[in-house]
């Protein structure tokens, strides 16, 4: 039973990170039907920015938690700026183009950003300071759930509540939902659609950066390539939950995290990916639009 709990919590931690990144994929897809393949790179850039900030902060003698918050905030701002710019230069000029063109542009940006970080920083693995302190009250259960996992779970939970409030309760959120439902209609009633799209990219990137900082301080290393695998997994989570659906992305992330954790724990980590992708195939056969996805009617 304890083992089950360990695996469950491990899977939840991993899944909540997938969910954070998957939200970016799903929000962008919901509005402009684009799969932003460069999203994983934004996650990686968030982690790198946090590393640099943490380095600077350490020189100025700040301590653990304050560095984590400061590095997190700066990483979020920086990554949001990247997301905004990305949309502006790589996707907006292709707004009216066939759907394949922005997709290719996205893959191009992904490769560009990876190599940019590779050249500007390094190809080596860099140590990331363990910014999350070990809380004394967690010590008795540290072997089941450690302080970093707790911080990750709490942070992602708060972030998701804030996101829900933003979308459900604010005017901007209403405009986002309107744009998602019908872009031209939203424009007709006075919604600045371009601004909403930019905002979606900014929010998605901010979430990815939060994920990046949390994961980096959890596992203690960063590299220019970490965004690729995380991006693929988060994209899978988004599809699993139903791409375009925000609760779907969260659920998809968690399901994926649990599937990986239980597959590795009870069967064999050799087949971890086999089971998770097998699950994806199965769900897509039974529910082609994902767990919570709604089948869109093609308007002719």
């Amino acid at each position: 039973m304890e083992y089950f709990l360990e695996l469950f919590l491990g899977g939840t931690t991993r899944g909540s990170i997938y969910a954070l990144i998957a939200l970016g994929y799903t929000m962008v897809y919901g509005i402009i039907q684009l799969i932003n393949f460069a999203h994983g790179e934004i996650y990686m850039i968030g982690a790198f920015v946090a590393l640099i900030v943490a380095g600077v902060c350490t020189i100025y003698g700040l301590s653990g938690v304050s560095i984590l918050i400061l590095a997190g905030v700066i990483a979020v701002i920086y990554a949001s700026a990247y997301g905004y710019t990305l949309e502006k230069i790589a996707y907006r000029p292709l707004r009216g183009a066939p759907r394949l063109s922005p997709l290719i542009s996205a893959i191009g940006m992904s490769i560009f950003l990876q190599n940019y970080v590779l050249l500007a920083q390094t190809s080596d693995f860099l140590p990331f300071p363990r910014l999350i302190p070990e809380f004394a009250f967690m010590e008795p259960v540290a072997h089941i759930i450690g302080s970093p996992e707790l911080v990750i779970l709490v942070t992602t939970f708060i972030t998701m509540i804030l996101l829900t409030l933003l979308i459900k309760k604010t005017k901007v959120g209403k405009a986002m939902r309107a744009t998602q439902q019908d872009m031209s209609m939203a424009r007709l009633v006075g919604v600045n659609v371009d601004r909403i799209i930019s905002l979606t990219f900014v929010i998605g990137s901010a979430l990815a950066a939060i994920g990046g900082v949390l994961v980096a301080s959890y596992i203690g290393q960063v590299n220019f390539y970490i965004g690729f695998l995380a991006g693929v997994k988060a994209f899978t989570a988004a599809v699993l939950g139903g791409i375009g659906s925000i609760p779907g992305a969260v659920l998809g992330g968690l399901v994926l995290g649990w599937a990986e954790s239980f597959a590795a724990g009870y069967i064999s980590s050799d087949y971890e990916d086999v089971f998770t992708f097998g699950l994806l195939v199965l769900i897509l056969i039974l529910r082609p639009s994902g767990i919570l996805g709604k089948a869109r009617k093609q308007k002719v």
């Binding site: 491990g10 991993r14 995380a230 954790s261 590795a264 724990g265 980590s269 971890e272």
Partner: peptide
Amino acid sequence: FEGITPGAMDYSSIVQKVRK
């Protein structure tokens, strides 16, 4: 005796398995 996936986000499940 198992293989792990290089580049995976974390190895907590396999570490728990080693403990078990």
